[in-house]
């Protein structure tokens, strides 16, 4: 089955659903690690939207955006995991509701 046969609306709907799932994860999970993972889902949802739009119009721009987001996500994960490691060492917990030192 050819990808081009799938209507764009379905792809966009799927992409939105994944985005909302990721977003809900960011807002609802308390573990920093899971928040980071939810962020990855959000990014992937966006990637899916780009790729499907590119395929629909027969342009390469969507794939190029996907490459960019992929490298950004890789960098983000490496920095994010490093930070999470440090947070765990310093505070002994990854619960964001307990990591509230920075407040007015």
């Amino acid at each position: 089955m050819n990808a081009a046969n799938i209507p764009l609306d379905h792809l966009m709907l799927l992409s939105c659903m994944i985005f909302v799932i990721g977003l809900a994860g960011v807002m609802m999970r308390r573990n920093v690690l899971y928040i980071l993972m939810s962020l990855e889902i959000v990014l992937n949802a966006v990637c899916l939207a780009f790729v499907s739009a590119g395929a629909h119009w027969g342009k390469a721009d969507g794939q190029i955006m996907f490459m960019l987001i992929l490298s950004l996500a890789a960098a983000e994960v490496s920095v994010g995991l490093g930070l999470i490691l440090q947070i765990h060492r310093k505070h002994g917990t990854l619960d964001v509701d307990r990591l509230k030192e920075l407040q007015g």
Binding site: V26, V96, D97, L99, K100, E101, L102, Q103, G104
Partner: peptide, 13 residues
């Protein structure tokens, strides 16, 4: 204004 700075990441998001 500083009341809104709670330090809660989930609140910010």
């Amino acid at each position: 204004a500083s009341i809104t700075q709670t330090g809660s990441v989930r609140w910010y998001a």
